[in-house]
Simulated assay, not measured.
Amino acid sequence: MQFSPAATLPARLVDRGAEVLPGVLVTTAIALIATGIGAVFPVLGSAVPAIVIGVLLSLLRPRAMRGLAATDARIQPGITYSGKFLLQLAVVLLGVQLSIGSILQVGLESLPIMLTTLFVCLLGAWLVGRMLRTERRLTTLIGVGTGICGASAIAAVAPVIGAASAEIAYAVSAIFLFNILAVVLFPLLGHALNLDPHTFGLLAGTAINDTSSVVAAAGVYSTAALGFAVVVKLVRTLMIIPISVGLSVMEARRSADGARLTGRRIAKLVPWFLVGFIAVAIINSLGVIPDAPRDALVQVSVFLIAMALAGIGLSTDVQALRRAGWRPLVLGAILWMLVTLTALGTIAVTSGWR
C-alpha cells in the first residue's frame, strides 16, 4: 500500500506557501496601511481603505507590470488566495464571538426577512429582466447573486443552469459594483435611520450581496453589528441549496443539457467556512476559550478581512464592468434597491427598529 499523498504533504504545503507568499505579502502591506488609516479615522475601519487601495492599484497594475509579466504572475496566486481563503478563514474565526444558541436565535429571527427578500428578488429578476430583455441565464445569475450571496451563489448556480463563462463574468462584474457601494452607503443609511447594531446587522446580513461586503459594511458600522451580520449572512448562504435544486429541476425540464444535482453535489454546496464557523461557535459555547485569546482571535479575523478585501480589490477587472454594458447594471441596481427596501419594510413589520 502506498501512502505517497500523505508522505508528500509537507513538501506540497511548502510549495504552496512559496507560491502564494509574494501576493500575500502585498495584501499584508495593504492591510497594514489600511489598519493605520482605520486607526486615524475609526469610522472607516480597515476594510474600506483596504478594498479602495486594492481597486486603485488594480487600475495601475497593467501599466506598472508592462514588461514585468513574471512579477505579475508571481503575485497573482497570493492575491487570489487572500481574496478567497483568508476571507473564509476570517469568517471562521468570527465564530469565537458567538454561541450555538445565538446562531439558532438569529436564524429564527432572520428567516422571515430572508425568505421575503429572496422571493421579491427572484420575482423582480424575472419581471425586470424581461422588461430589459437581458439574457435568461444572465438574469438568473444576477438574481441569485443579489438575493443570496453574490459571487458564491453565482459560482454555485452557474453549472446548474449551464451558464457560459462570459455570462458568469457579466454577472459578477455587475454585482461587484453594488458590493462596493454597499460598503460605503449602508453604514450611512444605518446612521441616518438611527439603527442600533442589532438591527443594522440584520439589515446588512439580508440586503447586501456578498459576504465580504457584509463583513466590511457591518465592521464599519460597529463591532457589535459585525458578528450578528455575519451569522445572518451565513444562514442566508444556505439558501443556495434549495435554489440550486429548484433551478436544476427547471433546467432538466427545459433541456437535457442542464446540469443535475446529486446528493453528493448538494452536500458540496454547503461552504466549508460555514461548517468551520459553527464548529468554532460550538467550542466557544463550551466556555473553553479564555477572554484574552478570544479577543486576539477577533483582532486577527479583522486583519484577515482587510487582507482579503485588499486581494479582492487587486483582482477587480474594471474593464469587465465597462464591457458588461448598462442593462445588467440596471437590473442589478433595481434588484439591489428592491432587496434593501423589502428588508427594511419586513424588519419594521416583524421586529421593529430598535
Score class of each variant (00 low, 15 high):
residue 301 S to F: 08
residue 44 L to I: 08
residue 127 L to T: 11
residue 222 S to Y: 07
residue 178 F to E: 06
residue 114 M to G: 12
residue 354 R to W: 06
residue 263 G to N: 07
residue 55 V to H: 04
residue 96 V to I: 06
residue 261 L to N: 00
residue 81 Y to N: 09
residue 80 T to C: 10
residue 65 M to G: 14
residue 344 L to N: 01
residue 210 D to L: 01
residue 262 T to P: 05
residue 275 V to R: 13
residue 195 L to K: 00
residue 152 S to A: 15
residue 7 A to D: 15
residue 26 V to C: 04
residue 300 V to T: 08
residue 323 R to H: 07
residue 154 I to F: 10
residue 348 A to P: 11
residue 221 Y to L: 02
residue 317 D to T: 02
residue 282 I to M: 15
residue 268 K to N: 07
residue 99 S to I: 00
residue 270 V to E: 02
residue 179 N to H: 10
residue 340 T to Q: 01
residue 44 L to N: 04
residue 343 A to D: 04
residue 122 L to E: 08
residue 185 L to H: 08
residue 33 I to V: 15
residue 333 A to D: 00
residue 166 A to H: 14
residue 34 A to V: 05
residue 53 I to M: 03
residue 56 L to V: 12
residue 226 L to Y: 06
residue 199 T to K: 05
residue 6 A to M: 15
residue 153 A to E: 09
residue 141 L to Q: 00
residue 176 F to H: 12
residue 331 L to R: 03
residue 207 A to S: 15
residue 151 A to M: 08
residue 255 S to A: 12
residue 277 F to P: 00
residue 197 P to I: 02
residue 318 V to C: 14
residue 93 L to F: 14
residue 271 P to V: 10
residue 8 T to I: 09
residue 291 D to W: 12
residue 223 T to H: 12
residue 15 D to I: 10
residue 164 A to L: 14
